[in-house]
Design a protein around this nucleic acid. Structure first.
Lengths: 208, 208, 208, 208
DNA sequence: GATGAATGAGGGTTCATTCAT
DNA sequence: TATGAATGAACCCTCATTCAT
């Protein structure tokens, strides 16, 4: 299911030869995440991404043939990251209480954090390829739904899917807290944590 | 706290003289909402907004001295709208059960719906002035917190504020459902409704 | 047959309102002819055309929304010019000897001259829209064929068409002479003149 | 008159050492002809020429220090080709009738055909060095003029030169036919053939 | 010598904003 | 005051050419 060529045309040139190339690509992607996050897809300029990554504009285009291709590659990488993290989490679910699962979800978002906020700029906005965005959403929902079904025995597939959507949305709130003041932020996180626990607990009861 | 000049420089020229001027401004704002919603802040062009509102580009600039000013004015008007709606809701809270309050919140978002999706283009994205966006957020949070404190006697100010932030985030999920298929959407809405009820109910118990 | 909107999308904005606009368009077209002639379609730059016509680049694009549109408009105008000139010539043919007709063809090219050499840059090269080029060629061939049939009674349609193609090609030679030294040029023109006469005379004999 | 270094700076590095180098150069030139023909001088890219010839871009630049140098070298080679062909033809002229000579000219163009159409991309367009183009033209004219003087005894040098120019132009028409439909093309070729015969015959009479 | 990654000037095009009419 | 033609900075992207390996 995880083919070696994940995205046919997303990042045509993301496979540099030498070590140097890899570093360059990494620098570009880092700068891309930064700029897309700060400015959003439209307002981000390839020139700035090039400058911030210490790359000549021409070089940037050698690795990513278009702005959209760069956004897609970034999104794809993030999607893979998330997918793996969710898969890993899924394996540990059997040994966890429902509460720990809830907390794990929140922690999961906290870890993604910075990367996540950039994803918001690309996924929720008009950034990059629409298919790529849809694919990403599906990956995320599927992964979360899987975990839910393992955490809550007897949970029906359809119900899990719906819950996943709602849960993911709630978790996005975790990321939003980043822009709050530290004091307020701590309280917000605690509140979200509580809410997520409550949500999971409630299903367990309802689905029983 | 609410000074008579809510937005210092948001819409410097929004005070037209005659009836005609008011119509102009209304037409421009309507077109602005439409175009910003469809294309997002960056991709929206002043030229199109002018065209759609039947206004000459020069006239548009007489009323709104910049693209950002237009976005700010739109946001401000929306904020007022929301503020009033929340205030109205606040008055009815005393006679309502907690459950009805929860439902009202969801219905409130469903009513905003279309306007809301445009706000997303401006608030959550980088559209317009940052201060204006912050002000909007504060208005929203304050209004919701007020309602919460009326609905849940004994709820502390600080707690109410935190809950408001979380609740608002949850409610944004209502708007997101607009992009889902009808069938899935109905289920999602029901789920969110349930969650909001649960959230309010839980506080009532806890805070007691 | 000559509809008021000759080319549906060739020069969308070539109809300026005021006298000033007309002057501007004229200046742009003149500069366009000059630059396309000197550099050829590909090497010509919109920036230079703008500069030479004393127009800001943005203004140039108001009148001609793309480089191709400009080339097409130029070609269209030239085609119209040629069409009219040929039509006019056709009317005079009945009263002319075959020799005068031959000379008229040559003179016709001499008059076009400068315009013609630019057309070469657009018609014979890859300049502008392919359809536009094909249309132009057909116009030219049709016009010349008509004249031939009037000048040579009994000339069959098919034969006239073939002759037109050959004749047009010969006449292009008239334009090429422009790059020769004056002395050599005069001789060349005389030679071509003679050849054209001979060509027409020969058909008269053959077709008789 | 024909110095051993015909083109001072045309192809500075066209003298490879080993057999391998010669193959390289041949491959590059072949690819150059192909790409220039297909795309025209401007649209042709050095990268594509390198790729099609299986050469690294760096190597291509070792042999041909610039795009213009490559075009010039190609043109030079073509000029030599034409020169030889004309010289060969010149030797056979004494035993030929004027009609056969005329036909030979047409056949000559038909043989060049493909190569010729590429030359058009370079000679008639702005490809490569202007001097190189002038030199090529002179070569062609001289060769044709020589043949004419052998074919038509008593033909004066100056007259031969003028005729050569006209004749060459007519012959270019042969190449243009390539873009016509087969049926039309055959008729066109026949017509041109007839015209060339007529032209040569006419001089014989006049110059007598 | 061969290679191809790196460079950056320059090209076509858009659009927020201004200002003469 | 209303208008919309005019402006030009800035954007995305290409490609001839260089040079470190």
């Amino acid at each position: 299911m995880t083919s070696p060529k994940p995205a046919p045309d997303a990042a045509r040139a993301t496979e540099p030869k030498g070590e140097k190339g890899r570093q360059r690509v990494a620098a570009i992607m880092a700068a891309g995440v930064a700029v897309f996050t700060e400015k959003g897809y439209d307002a981000a300029t390839m020139t700035e991404i090039a400058a911030r990554s210490g790359t000549a504009i021409g070089s940037l285009y050698r690795f990513f043939p278009s702005k959209e291709a760069l956004a897609d590659a970034l999104l794809l990488r993030y999607a893979l990251h998330v997918k793996n993290a969710l898969a890993e989490m899924a394996q540990q679910v059997p040994d966890m209480t429902l509460e720990s699962v809830a907390d794990s979800f929140v922690d999961f978002m906290l870890v993604l954090q910075s990367q996540r906020s950039f994803a918001a700029a690309l996924v929720d906005a008009r950034g990059g390829n629409a298919d790529e965005r849809a694919r990403f959403r599906e990956t995320m929902r599927g992964g979360v739904a899987d975990i839910l079904r393992k955490a809550v025995p007897g949970l029906k597939q359809a119900k899990a899917k719906v819950m996943a959507v709602v849960l993911i949305h709630m978790l996005k709130g975790v990321v939003s807290t980043a822009s709050e003041e530290p004091a307020a932020r701590a309280m917000l996180l605690a509140e979200v944590r509580e809410l997520v626990r409550m949500y999971l607990a409630s299903v367990s009861g309802r689905e029983k």
